[in-house]
Amino acid sequence: MPKHKIDPNNWVKLYSDYLFNYTITRVSDREVAQDLISETFLAGLKSMKNFKGEASERTWLVSILKRKIIDHYRKINSNKGKAEVRMNYINDTDSEGDWLEERVADSNVKTAEDTLVNSELGGAIYDCLAKLPEKQADVFKMKTILGYGTETICNELNITASNLWVIIHRARTALAECMEENWFK
C-alpha cells in the first residue's frame, strides 16, 4: 500500500508557497516563478498515474519543478535566447556605452552556496508554518513575509488590530519553538 496519497485539489493551498520560495531563490523573477509552478502543477496532473506514493506529494512536485527550472534555463541559454539578449543591446542606442558596465559582474549576486542555504532555511520556515493553524499562518505571512500594514490585514481579513496581534503572538511563539527544534539544534 502506498505511504502517501495524491490530491491535486490541495496542491495550491499546501505547497504553492513552499514551491514559490524554492523557485524564486533560483530564478529571481516573480512571474517566471509563478509560471514554472503552474507548469509543475499541470505536469503533475498529467503524470499523476506515475505517482507511486513512496515519496511525499511535495517531494514529488519538487522533483517535477526541478526539471521545469532546468528547462527554463536551457531555454533562455539556447541560441534563440542569446540572440534576443543581443537584440536588446543593439536596439538600445540611447544608452550606448553603458553596455560594458551592464556586463560587469554584479557584486551583489548571491553565490550558489548562499542561495542553497536560503532555500533550505526558507524550506524549514515553511515546514514550521505548515504546522500552524491556517489563519495564523496566513496572518503571519501577510505581516512578516509580504510586509502588509496592520490596517490592510485587518480590513482584508475583517479582524481587529488587537486580534491581529494575538494571532501574531501565537504564530511567532510556535514558530520560534519549531525553528529552535528543527533548524537551530
Binding site: V12, D17, Q34, N118, L121, G122, I145, M179
Partner: peptide, 25 residues
C-alpha cells in the same frame, strides 16, 4: 526569529497570485 526570517529572504505568494494558480489548476 526576526533575524532568521530576514536572513532567509523567504518569499510567498500574494493572495491574488495564489488564486490565479488555483483557477488554472
Amino acid at each position: 526569529l526576526s533575524e532568521t526570517i530576514e536572513t532567509s529572504k523567504v518569499q510567498c505568494l500574494k493572495a491574488e497570485e495564489r488564486d490565479k494558480l488555483q483557477s488554472t489548476l
